[in-house]
């Protein structure tokens, strides 16, 4: 049971291990807060759609399962979009079209296909929650690094001394690709040294 939850955080991390969901990870992480909001919005969608898919899994004919999953996911993304627009208009503007694009985040469809359509509800919640949080922490880390070097702050708090020369490149697309590439290499390095010890 515990393993089902924890595997999403590290061993089968959706971004670093499964290499899914790069688009939102790169696009919105110009600040730590944006990364956190995108991570939580995606987690909400993956958990709620996972619960629904798991509940109706025996009613869906195999041939039409992908369209059915997609409609369920699109419904919950619409819910998130409306909630964000109503209660957090600033975040909604900041994330822009990347909120509706959660629909085509492969992590979410992937979990339905691999796990929730074959497992009972309580296990599905653990699995999707682990994947959602595994996605979220990578986004927060990526957002923090880019915000720290690009603006000198983290979550809007000034960290660097005012003499710090900000790296504009970190806020541009190039900086996003390179930072995530280095994080992925570090992840491989840590896994490799783990294996050597074992």
């Amino acid at each position: 049971m515990r393993k089902i939850f924890y595997k999403g955080l590290w061993a089968e991390n959706p971004i670093l291990m499964q290499l899914l969901g790069f688009c939102p990870a790169l696009a919105v992480t110009t600040s730590a807060l944006n990364g956190l909001s995108m991570g939580l919005a995606t987690s909400f969608v993956v958990v709620t759609s996972g619960v629904v898919v798991s509940l109706v899994r025996k009613l869906i004919p195999d041939q039409v399962r992908i369209p059915v999953f997609t409609i369920i996911i699109a419904t919950f993304v619409t819910v998130v979009d409306i909630i964000l627009k109503a209660y957090f208009p600033a975040i909604s503007t900041e994330l822009g079209p990347y909120v509706p694009l959660i629909v085509v985040n492969c992590i979410i469809l992937g979990r339905q296909e691999v796990f929730t359509s074959k497992n009972p509800v309580h296990l599905s919640i653990l699995d999707t929650l682990g994947m959602g949080l595994g996605f979220t922490w990578v986004l927060v880390l990526l957002g923090s690094i880019r915000e720290l070097l690009g603006l000198g702050s983290v979550f809007g708090f000034q960290v660097m001394p005012s003499s710090f020369e900000t790296w504009i490149v970190m806020l541009l697309p190039g900086g996003a690709f390179i930072t995530l590439g280095l994080i992925a290499a570090l992840y491989n390095y840590l896994n490799q040294s783990d294996r050597r010890k074992a």
Binding site: L172, P173, G174, A176, F177, G181, A184, N188, Q192
Partner: peptide
């Protein structure tokens, strides 16, 4: 280097491409 093989290197390459497309 082994740790860079696959996705990390692809991402770094994409980063360079993005910089040149600027």
């Amino acid at each position: 280097p082994a740790v860079f093989r696959g996705a990390p290197l692809a991402l770094l390459t994409a980063g360079m491409l993005a910089l040149s497309f600027m």
